[in-house]
Simulated assay, not measured.
Amino acid sequence: MQRILCLHFSGSPNAIEGVRKIRAIQAAHPNAEIHVYSSIEFPDVFSLVVDRALIYFEKPKGISFDVVYDLSPDSTTFWTKLTIGSWPKPWTEMSSIDFIKEVPAFDLAAKGITGKYIVYALEGDLVTQVLDYPNMVRLMDKLDIPIVLIGNSWDENFGYRLNKIFPEKVHNLCKFYTHTEMAAIMRDAEFIISHDSPMLEIAQILGKKTFAIFGASTTQLPASDTLTILENKELGCRPCASKLLNYCPVDHFQCMKDIDLSPIIHASKTL
């Protein structure tokens, strides 16, 4: 059997793009065994399309590969390319296959959630990519239907507090679910609220109406019928640095503090 190694050393917001590229490689090599060597912290994103046992976070040893494809050639260091054992070929083609159709159903009723609901995907790589907490509280207060919070263990800090403030309306499902399970939760939501994270790309692949909140970072994604970009365009300091930081370098964080969230509130009132 042919063995193919895929390199992915780009940041987590590009994880779903990597998944779509792996899908395209699978379509081009249907009988091959696909392995992934990655720096990303979310192996469950790649396990949507590759057996988890074939995902590595250190250079795979004792395995020979027939071909190596680089999914993020601009991010893979020369040293990694040199030591991998076979010079990688760049791969840019992305699959149009909707892998989310393979996601199993998620029983929200068992969590006490029935009827219509909104999903707020709290996840973000850095503090400066996540809405400030006072605005989170104000937003939860204004939304009129149940809100399901999803995210990782770090987001649990917000999820716990928001649930305590709004116990009847805000359901905290952070920390315990993989990206696959979170995708299943998102699939039946009325709409999605997201930061700059892999969850934004998953929401778009699902075709869900999404409100994407951008603070320190900016996006190349165009607004569309399913995507509304919320950002403070009045600031000359955005994006705040060539390499995003975990704090506001000018110490005001106005990109998130002064952001207009009224489109989300209006959308909830029309459901």
Rank of each mutant, 00 (worst) to 15 (best):
I100M: 07
I55C: 14
T128D: 04
A184S: 07
I97V: 12
V148D: 09
I213E: 09
N14K: 08
N152L: 11
G151P: 05
N172A: 13
L139Q: 09
I16E: 00
N232A: 11
I113A: 14
T83P: 03
D107R: 15
I34A: 04
R3I: 00
S47N: 11
L131M: 07
K243G: 03
I16V: 12
P222N: 10
T83K: 15
P146W: 11
L261F: 02
S262A: 06
H8A: 14
D155G: 13
G62F: 03
Q254S: 07
S262P: 04
G115Y: 14
K21A: 00
R187N: 08
I34P: 14
F176K: 12
Y37V: 05
I40H: 02
V250H: 09
S242N: 13
E17Q: 09
F176H: 12
D125E: 11
P13G: 04
W79S: 06
D144Q: 15
A203Q: 03
K164Y: 06
W154Y: 02
K101P: 01
A121G: 14
N232E: 10
I16F: 08
R3W: 04
S86E: 11
I55T: 08
V36N: 04
V67R: 11
F78E: 14
R23A: 12
G112S: 15
E181N: 07
F211P: 01
V148G: 13
D225I: 01
R23Q: 07
Q254Y: 07
L82G: 09
G18K: 08
A203I: 01
L48Y: 05
I229V: 06
Y69T: 02
V137T: 04
A241G: 03
W87Y: 09
F46K: 11
G85H: 07
P249F: 06
P249G: 15
T219W: 07
F65D: 01
W154I: 06
D107K: 15
L200T: 06
A28D: 08
I145D: 07
P13R: 10
C248V: 10
Y133V: 05
P13I: 01
L173E: 08
I265S: 05
V250T: 14
L139N: 13
S38P: 00
F166I: 13
A189M: 15
K257I: 02
S75A: 09
T77P: 14
K209F: 02
A24Y: 08
K59T: 04
F57S: 14
A109Q: 06
I193M: 09
E181V: 09
K116M: 09
P198S: 11
F158W: 12
